[in-house]
């Protein structure tokens, strides 16, 4: 398999441009060149010809939000890609086995009990996946169909609990806003923690690229080719849960990115995870930075939850690709 480097370089370039561009957007006008220089000055030594105020706006306010958007987008698209490949199910997304319901319950609890939302949603999301995995385990094996079904069952159970909390809550809009997903609480500490967990999880997932390719041929064939499929399942589930939980805990439940971005990339690059993973990561980052910029400017000064934008921009684009390709869509 000869790897295609060109699309990766192109996507990395687009990501850089979109990132810089979106930091220039806002009430205070800052030019693209200035924004780019302020950012690059953090890495390279560049002669300073901008004001302290501009630097504070870019580095202190806008950049953490844009970076968090990129991280969350990368995490969701990569995890979605992994789940689609592992479950061989085109409907799969990072949340499919109950992750979102677990995180939502944690967030709802945190608002009720006045505890830190990120921490609690991360914990409940992780516990959920662990429970789903344990319940699906039959005689040392985890059949994919059982995993899906028990994920859906536990998910609906937790969703019912969350609905109950929302119904009983004094200010339910807090929880509801969180459920729609948004990046308005971004700050540097969140960027640091998220980047650590997400990059670790993504690197771990990349290591399974080849095995996931072989497992697309079927689990039994993969075993005949020397792959311990249960190890792969566990590793992929743990890594993608880690990055999804990290993403959800800082941004709420942003839908669509993890479902659609991997599909679009699959249409473009084909099923080889060794190229599909990195392109999905980059495209997910680009997509969420782009849509988040729209969500905070389209009705300025009102900010929309980014989840609304991701679906309303992503769905038509995906349908267009689907029709244009005229191909069957596979996981």
């Amino acid at each position: 398999m000869k790897l295609k480097i060109a699309p990766l370089l192109l996507l990395a370039l687009i990501l850089f441009i979109v990132t810089v561009f979106s930091t220039t957007i806002g009430t205070a006008h800052i030019s693209f060149a200035t924004a780019a220089k302020i950012m690059l000055a953090q890495i390279f030594s560049i002669e300073k010809n901008w004001s302290m105020r501009e630097e504070t706006i870019i580095l202190g306010i806008r950049l953490p939000r844009v970076l968090l958007a990129a991280l969350v987008g990368a995490a969701l698209a990569t995890a979605g890609c992994a789940m689609q490949g592992l479950l061989k199910n085109p409907m799969a997304d990072p949340y499919i086995i109950g992750m979102s319901s677990g995180a939502a319950l944690g967030a709802a609890l945190s608002f009720t009990l006045h505890l830190p939302t990120s921490l609690l949603s991360f914990i409940t999301a992780t516990i959920t996946i662990f429970a789903v995995y344990r319940i699906s385990k039959v005689g040392g094996r985890v059949p994919v169909a059982t995993l899906l079904l028990s994920g859906i069952a536990i998910g609906s159970f937790l969703a019912a609990l969350t609905s109950l909390l929302i119904y009983m809550a004094r200010s339910p809009h807090q929880i509801i806003f969180w459920l729609m997903g948004g990046l308005w609480t971004s700050d540097w500490p969140k960027v640091r923690i998220a980047s650590l967990m997400i990059s670790l999880g993504i690197i771990l997932l990349y290591r399974y690229s080849w095995n996931l390719n072989v497992m697309l041929l079927g689990e039994e064939q993969a075993q005949y080719l020397g792959i311990n499929t249960e190890d792969v399942k566990r590793g992929v589930l743990v890594s993608s849960s880690l990055i999804t939980a990290a993403a959800v805990s800082v941004s709420g439940i942003i839908g669509f990115v993890g479902l659609i971005v991997p599909h679009i990339m699959r249409i473009v690059t084909g099923p080889d995870h060794r190229i599909l993973f990195p392109t999905s990561t980059l495209a997910g980052a680009i997509f969420l930075v782009f849509t988040d910029t729209i969500s905070r400017t389209i009705l300025s000064p009102i900010e929309l939850p980014v989840g609304i934008i991701t679906a309303s921009f992503g769905a038509p684009f995906f349908l267009y690709l689907l029709r244009k390709q005229g191909k069957k869509i596979h996981a």
């Binding site: 398999m1 390719n213 697309l216 099923p271």
Partner: peptide, 13 residues
């Protein structure tokens, strides 16, 4: 196999 791997990729597996 529903996935669009090339023959060389399949054999390489």
């Amino acid at each position: 196999i529903d996935f669009e791997f090339t023959i060389e990729e399949i054999v390489l597996m």
